[in-house]
Nucleic acid binder design. Structure first.
Length: 903
RNA sequence: GGCGAUGUAGCUCAGCGGGAGAGCCCCUGCCUUACACGCAGGUUGUCGCAGGUUCAAACCCUGCCGUCGUCACCA
């Protein structure tokens, strides 16, 4: 990268020298250096030029590990947005940060300890937390390094961590405020409990899987010897016989005619000989199983609700570690539930209580962090009352304050909010925000306070104990968009950058995170935290499978950078990131971006080589040739396409437009044409052309910068006439004066002729050194004819032909020449000796057939009175034009076939 | 079971009311004064199936089939 001073010297030096670029595009040479230069010059910080700010807060990666491809996709798309908006002149802020990821991080540390044969209790809370902070620091450093490696232009001076002092204060503030508003409460409820992690989980932290299990049919005898249907017992079916020790009733549906007579009777619970009643409750399905359900309020959510309705006791049969407790008969105490299940079944069988055992697959909840089967478990926990919060989030969405891209995710969002249940926020973990509640050991009062309490506010006792639990990790994440900007303080960042503009995240955390952020933000700031929500697809392998450690199909983003460079990765991901679509990739996919970056590099190299002896001049619109106007028109169109695409989160459309413009229009046509013009020997013309080439190249770099940040910056630094960094330059704008439809049409005609001639060459297999004599017959006189005539040399170069006659009178002798045709022209190549008639006639016949089919379709429409009266005028007009075109094609093709047959 | 997505060239996918597209792959020539990570040319499709709406449907509607994702307390 050249320093700015050197570049200025190029500019004022008058006559240019050739600027040499290394022969090979080697991103490793400059990506690191450029990133440092950006950071050093502070260009990731917002610059206030007066416009409306554009703000994004980065979804904070968990400090449990390192970044995967999903993070790379996410952050690279954000970077593209950020760079684009920054270049449009808006004060642009991207806030980076990381998440402490409570349970996940704690698990990482506990796994480490386990390898040393230790448990967290062996270390004690303080030592354990020290160790966790070390893990956090280590992963944090790796994550930051990775984000820098992939080029994220976030403002590192504003980096945050969910357990920072400021954010911790925000968490406490939130908890206390919600408590005071009656939206946080403590209560004894049946919660999801992971015996492995030793903590309660929220409903959405439970993943349901289909597990193979059994359905045991167990007989419960009547207590009073009642005989019912010829038996002195009834049968219930259960998937979890071990929970029978917690049974307090058997329920039937009140409308179940079969059992009306036995409701109220007592049964004997086998193995423990406890009496339980038969009750009627409408939640019982008449159709399912025997129509009888054992009721275990402490271990099943339905039974819990049912028990509450009937005032039944909840008997907890489990220890916190998932083993059976002292309520159970001695022989089962201490056994893990899973093992106890079979032992109890055996015991039931031995006692003659087991009627039968069936195989049964059903949905079972598992911990989303460790995969252990989750137990419904009765315990005292803290909850957030969600309904009032959800209402606000729903109305904000209905009012259009948040918008999803793609829109369909709104269903996911709204249906979750509409069916919301209270959120269990206490976790029996050590890593996280300690619940800001102090229990008075004397009077039992709960002191809820942001600041540490030393004296009970009720009785004044100093004997206080803080709640040992911590808060769910999402209880800090849901504040992220404003806690990172300094809330609850009224900071200048809050005033300036909140609410933020866009959120980019994956769909798997819409519930966990997106909707909760909206709820928290509305509750505490009164505003939606962001306007646009762009939901990315998931990164998958080429077979469409999720990338995972266990499958070993993951791709390390850093390896991609090593192999292809950050630009190649970002461009490829953008190119593949169709809105709402998953991104299927393998390592080779990134060759797309790599090839493109290489193309840009080499095109630049070529153009810079040609600066030798040139004197760069201002580009005057009036002096532009048809080709010049055409390329500016192309650039102009693409600028509009890209701007529109980025502003609507259509990254793939933007990337495709860039690719198409730079590779096809610019390199394959404009630069190829320029090559010939540069050989003219006319210094003034060459100076002008070199200036235009530099102009287009410079503007292209700016246009492409959000997508290929490093290579465009590197090239920018080598181009004459550039100042500063491209990252801080202005995004190109569409300009009306650049529109050139007439010139576009002329160039397209010429392109079409060139392609026809090339087609003939290729079909004939003509060696490069054989120059064909050509007649180009134009159907109409006028501009096109003049244009082709004045570009005969160019046509010859591009198409590889010798002497060319442009015939707009239709008089040239073309006897024996090989024909080809397109709209408005025919070309005749004098290549009789090498024509392969056998091969060519079928090809032309195929063309003819296609044209005939097209014509037939067009005629069908035009002969349909309904079409003529019902269709828009333009549509009818277009069909007429098509008719003429197809007829022309047909007549030419027929003639050409005759010509060939005569050979 | 509810909801949603998706089915277009061998592969990955754009297009979403008026002439079937891209990239990769494949085939044929070319190391043409940047790029073989290249240049030029070419092949390839009952646009899942069946109905309907419309002058016109890959595109809108309905049903079906396939695939995937999500939510859901049925013992």
């Amino acid at each position: 990268m050249l320093r700015i001073a050197e570049r200025v010297a190029f500019r004022v030096g008058g006559v240019m020298k050739s600027i040499e670029l290394e022969k090979v595009y080697n991103p490793k040479e400059f990506e690191g250096k450029i990133y440092s230069a950006w950071v050093d010059s502070g260009c990731f910080k917002p610059v206030d030029k007066g416009g409306e700010p554009f703000t994004v807060v980065m979804p904070p990666p968990n400090v449990t590990g390192i970044l995967h491809m999903g993070h790379a996709l996410n952050n690279m798309l954000q970077d593209t947005l950020i760079r684009y908006h920054r270049m449009t002149g808006r004060p642009t802020l991207w806030v980076p940060g990381t998440d402490h990821a409570g349970i996940a991080t704690q698990n990482v540390v506990e796994r480490q300890l386990a390898r040393e044969g230790l448990k967290r209790q062996d270390l004690g809370r303080e030592k354990f937390l020290e160790r966790t902070w070390e893990v956090k620091e280590r992963h944090h450093d790796i994550i930051v390094k990775q984000l820098k490696t992939i080029g994220c232009s976030c403002d590192w001076s504003r980096e945050r961590f969910t357990m920072d002092e400021g954010l911790s204060r925000a968490v406490k503030e939130t908890f206390v405020t919600l408590y005071n508003r009656g939206l946080v409460y403590k209560g004894e409820y049946l919660v999801n409990y992971c015996p492995h992690c030793g903590t309660a989980l929220a409903d959405d932290e439970v993943e349901h899987q289909t597990d193979a299990g059994h359905l045991w049919h167990v007989n419960y005898p009547f207590a009073d010897g009642t005989v019912f249907n010829g038996k002195n017992y009834i049968t219930v079916a259960t998937t979890r016989p071990e929970t029978m020790f917690g049974d307090v009733a058997v329920a039937v549906n009140p409308d179940d005619e079969r059992y009306k007579s036995i409701v109220g009777k007592k049964l004997i619970l086998p193995l423990v000989n406890r009496e339980i009643p038969i009750i009627a409750d409408s939640f019982v399905g008449i159709e399912f199983g025997t129509g009888m359900v054992k009721i275990t309020p402490a271990h099943d959510p339905n039974d819990w609700e049912c028990g509450k309705r009937h005032g039944l006791e909840a008997i907890n049969i489990l220890n916190p570690d998932g083993t059976l407790n002292d309520v159970c008969p001695t022989e089962f105490r201490g056994l893990p539930a899973e093992e106890a299940r079979f032992r109890v079944a055996d015991a039931l069988s031995d006692g003659g209580f087991l009627l039968k055992t069936e195989d049964y697959t059903h949905e079972v909840g598992h911990c989303y962090r460790c995969g252990t089967t989750v137990e419904p478990y009765l315990s005292k926990q803290w909850f957030v009352k969600m309904k009032p919060l959800a209402e606000k989030a729903l109305s904000a969405w209905r009012a259009g304050e948040v918008r999803f891209y793609p829109k369909r995710w709104e269903n996911t969002y709204s249906s979750w909010l509409e069916n919301i249940r209270d959120w269990c926020i206490s976790r029996q973990l050590w890593w996280g925000h300690r619940i800001p509640v102090w229990y008075c050991q004397k009077c039992g009062h709960m002191n809820v306070s942001v600041d540490e309490v030393h004296e009970c506010e009720s009785c004044g006792s100093t004997d206080l104990k803080q709640d040992p639990d911590v808060l769910d990790t999402w209880f800090s994440s849901w504040l992220w968009p404003f806690s990172t900007l300094g809330w609850p303080d009224e900071t200048s960042d809050m005033k300036r950058f909140f609410p933020t503009s866009a959120l980019v995240t994956a769909y798997d955390i819409i519930f966990f995170w997106v909707s909760r952020m909206i709820m928290a933000s509305l509750e505490f700031t009164g505003k939606a935290p962001f306007r646009d929500i762009y939901i990315t697809g998931l990164v998958r392998d080429k077979q469409g499978r999720k990338m995972s450690k266990s499958l070993g199909n993951g791709i390390d983003p850093i390896e991609v950078v090593e192999l292809y460079g950050s630009d190649a990765m970002k461009f490829t991901l953008c190119y593949l990131a169709a809105q709402g679509q998953d991104v299927l990739i393998d390592m080779d996919s990134f060759r797309l971006g790599s090839r493109f970056a290489n193309k840009i590099w080499n095109a630049t190299r070529f153009l810079l080589m040609n600066l030798e002896g040139r004197n760069l001049v201002p580009v005057e619109r009036e002096s532009l040739s048809v080709f010049d106007k055409w390329i500016y028109d192309s650039l102009n169109r693409n600028i509009m396409t890209v701007r529109h695409a980025v502003e609507n989160y259509k990254f793939n459309e933007a990337a495709a437009a860039i690719y198409d413009f730079f590779w096809n229009d610019f390199c394959d046509w404009y630069v190829e044409i320029a090559k010939q013009r540069l050989r003219s020997g006319d210094d003034a013309e060459c100076d002008r052309l070199a200036s235009i080439l530099m102009d287009i190249l410079r503007e292209s770099m700016a246009m492409m910068h959000p997508f290929l940040s490093f290579v465009t910056e590197e090239i920018w630094s080598r181009l004459p006439g550039t100042e500063g960094f491209v990252i801080s330059s202005s995004y190109p704008v569409w300009r009306e004066e650049r529109e050139a439809p007439a010139e576009r049409s002329l160039v397209e005609s010429l392109q079409s002729i060139v392609r026809s001639v090339r087609g003939i060459r290729a079909e004939m297999g003509l060696p490069a050194d054989v120059k064909m004599r050509l007649v180009v017959r134009l159907d109409r006189k006028g501009e096109v004819a003049e244009f082709v005539k004045s570009n005969k040399n160019l046509l010859g170069t591009l198409a590889g032909s010798g002497e060319i006659l442009v015939d707009d009178e239709g008089t040239a002798d073309v006897a024996g020449a090989f024909p080809a045709s397109g709209a408005g022209y025919e070309v005749f190549a004098f290549v009789r000796d090498v024509v392969n008639v056998e091969k060519e006639i079928p090809r032309l016949e195929k063309e003819l057939k296609k044209a005939e089919d097209d014509l037939a379709a067009t005629l069908r429409k035009l002969s349909n009175p309904a079409f003529l009266s019902g269709a828009k005028a333009e549509a009818v007009e277009k069909e007429r034009r098509k008719q003429a075109e197809f007829e022309e094609k047909i007549s030419k093709a027929r003639a050409h076939i005759e010509v060939l047959k005569s050979f």
